[in-house]
Structures are given as structure tokens and as C-alpha cells.
Design a protein around this nucleic acid. Structure first.
Length: 839
DNA sequence: GCAAGGTC
């Protein structure tokens, strides 16, 4: 039996299909897919199935001095037990083994891990390696006809990286966490990739903080041509002879403005320049460029990749983790375009592209052996099979492929330079005696690839045809006061592009690294903004472990890995040298342990500080109750017990903005799509108490004495809500407009006063707010059950639920999952719990 | 509970 091992299940299935001529059948062994036909078996791993770690006796952070990790042994242990077991049992019966992992360094290492697992149970079977850069019939057949050997040197290069990353990362992470007494979930981590990435953000933040704006002015004039006018901007030549628009001298700006604004101001056209510019179509999608494009559609790096992975797993697009920007020879663009002909969304574009005579796809600079650039596979999903996000990303990938085989666009640029007539009595900048204006027009003459790829800005700027010597009056002049702006924060996709340029991280990990910075409390918001803790970690690293905060550590490691791969150095040479270096770092580090710990702790506290406590000399902090919910408490606790509530949904983020009245920073609650700005917690608490009390809260009145009151929210809407908010979020809606009168009449059923809304001529007797809301809900449910608003409940399911007596979200929330599951076919307890969580 | 790299 021949055993073929791939890096992932998906590749295993496709290779089995190709080699068997689609006759392979899928079976499961130990819960792992195995594809079989004749005497062949194919199994897919899940990337690395073994991992490196220190022996058990090093696992207690408090027991082990971090410095001891430097010379600790590093072991490899299975991390994917079931896959390892399945692999071993297949390997026992194999008389030939073929390693078909990805064609890159990490793939070679994963292959070597498989090799060793096989050798543990089978000493004799020959083990070959096949290499292919895309899973197409030709490439795969060719690879199996030209079997090669596993490259142990290349795998060793990968092992050097594993060892060095573990030792540096673990030793420094434990050192910082212990020195700041941050154990448990909130440890302080550093690493070869995350820390230089964080430094990029911190450096930018430092620039922003140090930035001092300068004033400047810009001057515009609308020039009249026939019945139209068009905007032209004042410019001059600076010392270097370059065109400059920013005027730094206010007196000069005023003088130019006056000259332009004079009632008789006229200009003469000095120059008219027309040129056409070719606008080449974009390159094929690498992971980084894909993330950037998805970013412009509003997807975070993580989300964009996650959607792409789903589309890949479903078979609609190729593997989304690739550095490659050159399509392989195997890809026949015409053939792929043909697949889209007749499609209701893409058909017309595909047909028009097929009319191009010689289709020559664009190419980027990066050509790699691992995977092709991301492109559609030709298996086209129905729109209804995909979620909105999936469809949007799928369309992006299809259209990007279209763009890479489309024709260039052509722009016509029209530049008009005009000069103010008559003598000007202004002290103008050097090398000019004139007030000169320019207008830059552009027009898309041939849309080219923009027709099939509508994601780029193609807005035109209209400038009419004018001739040299023509006189144009000034319709209006404008002087704009401006300020230079601080550099902008990195957005997620810019950050990923910069990481790629600096060579840190990989196509598969860069987006995860950014996510990790969020999880660790190093950055907040989007674009990511570093916290005080992040500043302190970077400062500590810069001072004591400069290597781990610089991208040079990666580039030097890359150099060493190349040396190992080429047989010029050994794994031991490289790791030993790295250990010595880390040893020297620790010599200085341990001397300053307390100082470093102090600084980190202060920064951690600063990240949680809102401002002064009204009842003591301490600060108010965001704290976490035992149950995990956040609230505001005093740093002077237990002497001062002052607290303020925070909403129960989401994770609090402290903003820079401060409340004028209480000097407290505003709070934003991060809760995915339901993220909202809570504002100053003191103001919110004050507001919550406002308004007349109507009666007992039906949800928590018995247990906690909650009461219902009329509340006005910051956004202007009003409601009847519990005074114990946010601990109790019972609420009833109220109309936005009109004055609300609380009458002496009380509802018999609920004991609440009847309300009257005065808005316009006719007062509206709203009545008891609970009864009013019930009626409103009844009207809503007449027009269709609100259950369908929940993700995962379609019309059919809603009908089935209604048959079982569950007609609304309220019903669902109060239902017992096991009872419902018993009454409704095909609906499990689990699903009901999920809906209840969503409701 | 540490890293970074695979993959889901």
C-alpha cells in the first residue's frame, strides 16, 4: 500500500481525485478523512501536528526562573493526537510513503514531522517527497512522475526558527509578566513578530503625540468659461523649483486673496497641456493585496481572511494564503472565463473579456512555489448559497481575476495654467512675479478594466477646453485656512503591508498577529491605537532587549535559516549562538527587574484610569467584578467604596475624550456590531435616575426593588426602563416626540400609571406602557413573526415553532429548550440555546 | 498560561 501525506484535508481530497481519476472513495479513520482507491491511501494533516515545548518541569511560571528556559531542552510532542494516531496506523501497513505537503519551507518541516512519525512505526518503507505549486492535474502528475527526496536541511532551518522563537518568546514573556505580577490571563507577551509589529504602532503614536501643527493657507479661484466655471488653485515655485500650493505666510496669503477677489480680476491662459495616461490593471491577488482590497470594503484583516477560508473550503476560490502574484502556466484564462459565460452576474463581463484577442494576465514581482495567486476556481456558487459577506468577497475575487486579464484604462489629463492679469503689488515668493493658477482635469477615456473591477475610484475632474491666450474672468475667490495634520495611524491593511515589506510574519500569520495585539490589551479601536501598556512594553524591550523589538531579528534569522538550508551552518550552531545572545540580554534584564515591573504596573493602571473620584483623593478605574462584568470603582477601595455602573454588554474601552463636567474619560462598549459609545459614566448614572418613577419593575422588583422610570437617552430616544440599569435591562419603548404626562389613573393589570403624549393638537392616550407595548407587539406579529429576524430561523422553522406555541422572540426567550426540542421536529436543544443567546 | 508557524 502506498500512503500519501498532504498538509491539509482539502489537498488530500483533490490529489486523490486527480490520481485516481475521480474514483477514490472517502473513509474515516480515527475521525480523520482517508481517501482510498486501489492500493493507495491519502491522508491530510492539519498543518503541524506536533509542536515544540519545554519539558513538564518547566511549566510552572513561579517555580522556574525565566532565565533557566534559555538552556532548557526543547521537546516535540503531538498536538493533534487523532491525526497522529491515524497516520501511525496507516504507516504501519505502508510499503511506500509519499510526502506531498506544501512546496515551501514550513511544508518541508511539516513533511519531516510526518517522516519521523512514519519512521517511528515503520523502518523500511521508502519515503519520497513530491513538490507541486498548484493542485492541477498536470502539476500533480508531473510531481508524482518525478519523485524527490525530503530536504532535511530545509526542514532544519524551520526547526531553528521554532526553537529560537520559543526560547526568546517564553523567557521574555515570563520575565515581564512576573516582574509586573501579571500572571493568569493578563500576562505580558513579547515575540519576534508581535513586538516589532507593536513597535510600528507605538512609533507612529509617538510621532502623533509629538506633532505640532503649522498653519498654512490655500487659495482657489473659480474661472469662468462660457456658462461654466471651474476651480483653479494658486501655486508658486518653491526654492527647489517644485510646484507648491501651501502658502506659509499669512500676509502673502491675504495679499494673493485680495488680488484674486478684486472685482475686475481677470486671468489669461498661459499653458494648456493635454496628455493621455495608461492606467494598468492590478496584479493578481496575494494574501496581502487581498486583505487590502477587502479592507476597502470594510472587512477587518481577520474577517476578510475568515470569509476567504470559507470560500476556499467550499471549493469556490483557490487557497487564500499565498505570497504569489504570478499565475502559473497551468491557468488558462480563457478556459476560466468560459466558466462564467451565461452567469447572471458575471456572464456579460466574462463574454466581453473573451473578445480580447491575446489575453495576457498581469504579473506582480513576487513569484513563489507554494500556491497560485488567489483566483476563482470556476466552480461557481449560487448567490443564495452564500451569506452576504461571502458573496461580496467572492465577487471581489472573481472581479480581481477579471481585472488581471482585462485591458488597461486610459485617462486624459488636462492641465491649464492661467496668470492673473495686470501688475500685482505683492511681495511674491522667489522666482515668480506673477500670481499663477492651475487646474488639473482628468477624464476616463477608456474604462478598460474598471468596467469589470468597480472598486477603484474613477471620479473625473471636469476642466473645460480652453485655449492659450484666452482671457477668463474670476467668478469667485476662496482662501482656506488649514493646518498640517499629524501622521495617520496605521490601518490594519497598511500594517499588514508594512509587515510584509519588513519581512516579519508570514502570509498565514500576519492577520493573526494583529488580532493577538488586541487580545493582549496592546491595542484598542480601529485603526489600532496602542495602549499605555504597549508603550511600556516597547520601551522596556527597546532598552533591554533591542533585538526582539526590531525587525532585524527576523532578517538575521532568515539569513541563518538560509545558511542551514544550504548546508553552510547547522541547527545547533545557530540555536546555540541565539541562546548566548539571549543570555547576555538577561544579565542586564534581571538587574532592573523592579524598575521594569514598576513601569509596567503604572502603565497598566493608566490604561484603566478614568479620572478623579468625587468622594476621595484617588482615581476611578474600570474594574472587573468577580462575575466578569465591568464597573467603575475607586482606586482607594476599600476605604472608598464609590462605584458607577457600566452597561452589561461588551468590553469597555476608555476613550481619550473627557467629560467637561466630571473630568472623567468617556467609555465605549465594544460588542462587535453592537458597539456603542456609553459616554461619561457619571453623566450616565445621573441621567438614569432622572424622570418620574412609575412603579415596580416587573423583572426585578420582587427580588431587587428595581423600579421603572421614564428615561431620556443621550441619542434623544426615550424609554421606560429599570432604575437598576445596567444590571436589569428591562425596558419599554416610548415615542420620540411630544411631552409625556403621567396621569393618576393606574392600569389594573400592571399597576402602572396611564400615560398621555402631547404632540400636536390631539393628545395621544398611550395608556399603561406595558399594555401599549403588548399591543404594539401583537400588531407586529400579525404582519409576520419576528422570529425570522433571528439568524438561523427561516420561514419554515418559524412556522414549525409557531405550531409548538412559540410565536415570538419573547416566547422563545422564556421557553425551556428541552421541552421545545421535544415538540419540534429537526430542532435540537443546542440550536434553541443558540437562538436564545442571539435573541 | 509563554512564540510563531501551520490549519479549521
Amino acid at each position: 500500500m502506498e500512503l500519501i501525506i498532504t498538509e491539509k484535508d482539502n489537498a488530500a481530497r483533490r490529489i486523490a481525485d486527480i490520481l485516481s481519476g475521480e474514483s477514490a472513495s472517502s473513509t474515516r479513520r480515527n475521525g480523520v478523512n482517508v481517501y482510498r482507491w486501489g492500493g493507495k491511501r491519502v491522508i491530510g494533516l492539519s498543518g503541524h501536528v506536533v509542536g515544540v515545548d519545554f519539558p513538564e518541569e518547566y511549566s510552572d511560571w513561579r517555580d522556574v526562573e525565566p532565565v533557566e528556559l534559555i538552556d532548557a531542552e526543547v521537546e516535540k510532542t503531538p498536538t493533534q493526537e487523532s491525526i497522529v494516531a491515524a497516520l501511525r496506523s496507516l504507516a504501519r501497513d505502508a510499503d511506500r510513503v509519499t510526502i506531498a505537503t506544501d512546496y515551501d519551507r514550513e511544508g518541508e518541516l511539516i513533511g519531516k514531522e510526518a517522516y519521523e512519525l512514519v519512521r517511528d512505526v515503520n523502518e523500511d518503507a521508502p519515503i519520497d517527497r513530491v513538490r507541486f505549486s498548484s493542485i492541477t492535474e498536470r502539476e500533480v502528475q508531473n510531481a508524482f512522475d518525478n519523485r524527490e527526496e525530503l530536504d532535511f536541511d530545509l526542514a532544519a532551518a524551520g526547526e531553528a526558527r521554532q526553537t529560537i522563537d520559543l526560547i526568546w518568546g517564553a523567557a521574555l514573556t515570563r520575565f515581564l509578566s512576573l516582574s509586573a505580577r501579571q500572571l493568569g490571563d493578563d500576562f505580558i507577551s513579547v515575540g519576534r513578530v508581535q513586538t516589532p509589529t507593536l513597535r510600528l504602532l507605538v512609533d507612529r503614536e509617538r510621532e502623533i503625540q509629538a506633532f505640532e501643527p503649522d498653519d498654512y493657507w490655500e487659495l482657489y479661484a473659480d474661472l469662468e468659461k462660457d456658462d461654466d466655471d471651474f476651480e483653479a488653485q494658486y501655486f508658486y515655485r518653491d526654492e527647489d523649483g517644485n510646484e507648491a500650493e501651501r502658502v506659509w505666510d499669512e500676509d502673502l496669503a491675504d495679499a494673493v486673496y485680495e488680488a484674486l477677489a478684486a472685482t475686475d480680476a481677470r486671468t489669461t491662459v498661459e499653458r494648456v497641456n493635454r496628455r493621455t495616461r495608461t492606467d494598468s490593471p492590478p496584479e493578481p491577488f496575494s494574501t496581502t493585496q487581498f486583505i487590502r482590497a477587502a479592507g476597502t470594503l470594510g472587512y477587518s484583516a481577520q474577517r476578510g481572511m475568515s470569509v476567504a477560508e470559507d470560500l476556499y473550503t467550499a471549493g469556490y476560490i483557490t487557497y487564500p494564503r499565498t505570497d504569489n502574484t504570478v499565475y502559473p502556466d497551468d491557468l488558462d484564462p480563457e478556459e476560466l472565463l468560459d466558466e462564467f459565460v451565461g452567469h447572471y452576474t458575471f456572464g456579460d463581463d466574462a463574454e466581453s473579456l473573451l473578445e480580447i484577442e491575446d489575453i495576457e494576465p498581469t504579473e506582480g514581482d513576487e513569484e513563489t512555489t507554494d500556491h497560485p495567486p488567489i483566483h476563482p476556481t470556476g466552480e461557481i456558487p449560487k448567490k443564495s448559497e452564500l451569506s452576504d459577506d461571502e458573496w461580496e468577497i467572492y465577487e471581489l475575487v472573481v472581479r480581481r481575476f477579471f481585472a488581471t486579464v482585462a485591458e488597461p484604462a486610459v485617462w486624459e489629463h488636462l492641465k491649464v495654467v492661467a496668470e492673473l492679469d495686470g501688475a500685482v503689488s505683492i511681495d511674491l515668493p522667489e522666482e515668480t512675479d506673477d500670481v499663477t493658477l492651475k487646474a488639473n482635469g482628468k477624464r476616463l477615456v477608456e474604462a478598460g478594466y474598471h468596467d469589470v473591477y468597480p472598486y477603484f475610484n474613477t471620479s473625473e475632474n471636469y476642466v473645460p477646453d480652453v485655449e492659450e491666450g484666452e482671457q477668463l474672468a474670476i467668478a469667485e475667490a476662496r482662501q482656506e485656512d488649514k493646518e498640517t495634520q499629524p501622521p495617520r495611524r496605521y490601518g490594519q491593511s497598511r500594517l499588514i503591508e508594512t509587515m510584509e515589506k519588513l519581512g516579519i510574519g508570514t502570509k498565514s500569520t500576519r492577520h493573526n498577529t494583529i488580532e493577538k495585539l488586541y487580545d493582549r490589551g496592546y491595542v484598542e479601536g480601529d485603526p489600532p491605537r496602542p495602549t499605555k501598556l504597549a508603550m511600556a512594553v516597547v520601551e522596556a524591550a527597546e532598552e533591554y532587549a533591542d533585538r526582539v523589538v526590531s525587525e532585524d531579528m527576523t532578517s538575521e534569522l532568515e539569513r541563518d535559516m538560509t545558511a542551514i538550508a544550504e548546508g553552510e551552518a547547522t541547527l545547533d550552531d545557530v540555536t546555540e549562538e541565539s541562546r548566548e545572545m539571549l543570555g547576555r540580554v538577561f544579565e542586564e534584564l534581571v538587574e532592573s527587574r523592579e524598575e521594569i515591573g514598576d513601569h509596567l504596573q503604572k502603565s497598566l493602571k493608566a490604561d484603566k484610569t478614568l479620572g478623579p473620584c468625587p468622594e476621595s483623593d484617588h482615581d476611578l478605574l474600570v474594574r472587573r467584578a468577580r462575575g466578569g462584568s465591568a464597573f467603575v470603582g475607586c482606586d482607594g477601595y476599600p476605604e472608598c467604596e464609590y462605584t458607577l455602573p457600566l452597561p452589561s454588554t461588551g468590553k469597555p474601552l476608555i476613550l481619550d475624550e473627557t467629560c467637561d463636567e466630571h473630568d472623567l474619560r468617556h467609555v465605549k462598549m465594544l460588542a462587535g456590531r453592537q458597539t456603542f459609545v456609553h459616554g461619561c459614566p457619571q453623566c450616565k448614572a445621573d441621567e438614569a435616575g432622572e424622570g418620574p418613577i412609575l412603579g415596580e419593575c416587573p423583572d426585578c422588583g420582587d427580588e431587587h426593588d428595581g423600579e421603572l422610570a421614564i428615561k431620556q437617552l443621550r441619542n434623544g430616544s426615550r424609554l421606560v426602563g429599570c432604575t437598576r440599569y445596567p444590571d436589569c435591562d428591562y425596558s419599554l419603548p416610548l415615542p420620540r416626540r411630544g411631552e409625556i404626562e403621567v396621569t393618576d389613573e393606574h392600569c389594573e393589570e400592571h399597576g402602572l400609571p396611564e400615560l398621555i403624549v402631547h404632540n400636536g393638537d390631539e393628545p395621544w392616550e398611550l395608556g399603561c406602557p406595558i399594555c401599549n407595548y403588548r399591543e404594539y407587539q401583537a400588531r407586529e406579529s400579525d404582519s409576520g413573526s419576528d422570529l425570522e429576524a433571528l439568524d438561523g430561523i427561516g420561514a419554515k422553522t418559524a412556522e414549525k415553532l409557531a405550531d409548538a406555541g412559540i410565536e415570538s422572540i419573547d416566547d422563545l426567550e422564556s421557553a425551556e429548550p428541552d421541552a421545545v426540542a421535544g415538540r419540534v421536529d429537526g430542532v435540537s436543544e443546542d440550536r434553541i440555546r443558540k437562538w436564545q443567546a442571539k435573541a
